[in-house]
Design a protein around this nucleic acid. Structure first.
Lengths: 355, 355
DNA sequence: TTGTAGGCGTTATCAC
DNA sequence: GTGATAACGCCTACAA
């Protein structure tokens, strides 16, 4: 690492004091135009950039934010994160990303870091703010100690959580409208004359999932239909989980008394689950949507190129990511208020729903 | 941001000097056990962590690395990056991620940052090392000025590039074996008695693509077969590109004289392209693998749950990511030598190849 | 083994 | 409008 040029060297070469150089660096108005111009020339010539360390020492900021999420390999997080990184950079913030890998428990890193450990690491990195996407934050029962860690972190730096609000958590929230989209799917299915509708995928005990299941049941009972509890099969968020959930559903057909009771349509928690489910159907010689219609709650890229093309919800992740960053930055700048967002998932009707 | 406790306060509370505290912080041996223990207790009690700024001021390191890649939304980069982040953290390095979004030109961020701008930003962030995955680095003709930026960056901090070596670039490289996997696919197809084999997807002028196309042609001609140039349709790396490439291929069937000349098997640059191609076939009433077999060069998660299940190459990205980080860290620690890696893609035979 | 003191590169607060 | 100078929190000779 070549030792960098310092502000005092720039000052010398420009024949001024460090304070004056510092002034042009932070474009303070009180510098004479000619000096300013000369100094700037020298700065450019030597390709000087101020030391982040020295700067940090005095104003205690890094211009870095931390983003903590479970699994960047999951398209939902990837698309959200992409926007976050981009908009943060537009505001001169770089993004430190932490992948907690708390997916299905089994994938935990060897050292057994807990999510709270990640909070601690982020704090040690002296980031100016923390953005949390999903993860344990979204559990139905958040351990007190976890909540405490969160609140404590928020006392040090602003913390924005993309997810459902938690009682007793002081962090800022950017909430998705979890129910509206599901309701739209249900209405769509009912309009298509489906009588028995199921729900597959999503981890039980996680609020993204339970909120959607609840919306699913509410929408149905509002229409005077009831849900067969056997038609709700939760598992997790990946293709293999859609595969296993659909298999469990189809296994019911073996029982004589439930033979004719299979759902004719199912709501999948996301596109990957939908794909896995379609795979499971195919393995039993069943076609989607002919034998069973499917619509998913979370559109992933290229879902429109699958066979069949997936009907799903566009959650407008670009918008969400942008809003989350805006919220974080405004909090970093001292604002207390929560930005209210207008998040409306959009039903993209394609083939898998049979419309 | 609550003002943090400092080393001198810890020193006071422990009844020792700052140097002694500093010694236990950096576990220098010369501290008496009892003092060490007491100091450590106070450190823990007050949850003290040294200021990264002050530390950086003296040893000029951040314990941060930068990862620069084009598009985290692309599963290839996501899986690579996931491993990178994880292994870096195991070595106490946090990861600053930059998503250049240089995908298809059109997606460039509004401010029109070039990749060289990202290098500059990474440098300004004073990272200890830079990891570059794909991007302009992989172009066939790298502009001189770009190469210069790269070399200049490497003079400041170690730069590791995951990709094909570039003449005149001093950075460290972690190279994938681009050809071996393609050859395996070709051999597999030939063993399946395919006479006319095509290649779809991948951006022309990009070396991942051209190296594979070349390997494809070499493998074929080594077997005494020749490639119809019309059967090589390059486009890009996404589903829509597989879709358009396959359509272009199928359009040939319209020409009377080339009617029977369609390939009976194609190699796709990756799973997404393969999926798009299968979609295009379906739209014309064609089945994969019955009408045309497909195998891809880059396996993505859940490719085994698609219809048909995709035959593709497992590039062992976990291994690659780990090696890249190891290379970077060893360079940060002053090692000059390149780690030699043993990268061997593995053919995963599933359904789309028709085996 | 322990403590003292100088310096790392900025910004901010003063004088001028 | 400009220039000294004192922090900022840590590490590392150097002294003891």
């Amino acid at each position: 690492m070549k030792s960098k040029i310092t502000i005092s060297e720039i000052a010398q070469k420009s024949g001024v004091s460090v304070s004056t150089v510092s002034r042009v660096l932070n474009n303070s108005p009180s510098v004479s135009p000619k000096k300013r111009e000369k100094i700037q020339r020298i700065i450019d010539e030597y390709n000087y950039t101020p030391s982040v360390f020295a700067r940090g020492m005095v104003n205690h900021t890094t211009r870095n934010i931390a983003v903590i999420l479970p699994d960047i390999t999951n398209p939902y997080f990837a698309s959200l994160f992409q926007q976050v990184e981009r908009f943060a950079l537009q505001h001169q913030y770089a993004t430190l990303m932490f992948n907690t890998m708390f997916v299905r428990g089994e994938q935990r890193p060897a050292e057994e870091l807990t999510e709270a450990d990640y909070y601690k690491i982020a704090l040690e990195k002296q980031v100016d703010g923390v953005l949390i996407l999903g993860g344990s934050m979204d559990k139905e029962d958040i351990p007190d100690e976890f909540l405490k860690a969160l609140n404590q972190m928020h006392r040090q730096v602003p913390v924005v959580i993309v997810g459902s609000r938690v009682d007793g958590c002081d962090c800022l929230f950017v909430e998705r409208n979890l129910k509206q989209g599901v309701t739209a799917i249900v209405h769509h299915f009912v309009a298509l004359n489906h009588e028995r509708i199921g729900f597959i995928g999503g981890e039980p005990g996680i609020r993204v999932t339970s909120a959607r299941v609840e919306a699913f049941q509410q929408a149905l009972s509002a229409l005077g239909k009831r849900v067969d509890p056997r038609h709700v099969v939760l598992s997790d968020y990946y293709a293999q989980d859609g595969y296993s959930a659909m298999n469990q559903l189809l296994d019911m057909a073996g029982d004589a008394d439930s033979n004719s009771q299979l759902p004719t349509a199912v709501v999948a928690i996301n596109d990957m689950v939908a794909l896995g489910a379609i795979r499971a159907m195919k393995d039993r010689g069943l076609q989607c949507p002919e034998h069973m219609a499917i619509a998913s709650c979370d559109q992933f890229p290229s879902g429109e190129y699958s066979v069949p093309r997936l009907t799903s919800l566009d959650q407008h992740n670009e918008y969400l990511g942008r809003m989350a960053v805006l919220q974080l930055i405004s909090a970093i700048n001292g604002s207390e208020e929560e930005i209210s967002i207008n998040h409306t998932p959009e039903l993209m009707i394609r083939e898998s729903c049979g419309a």
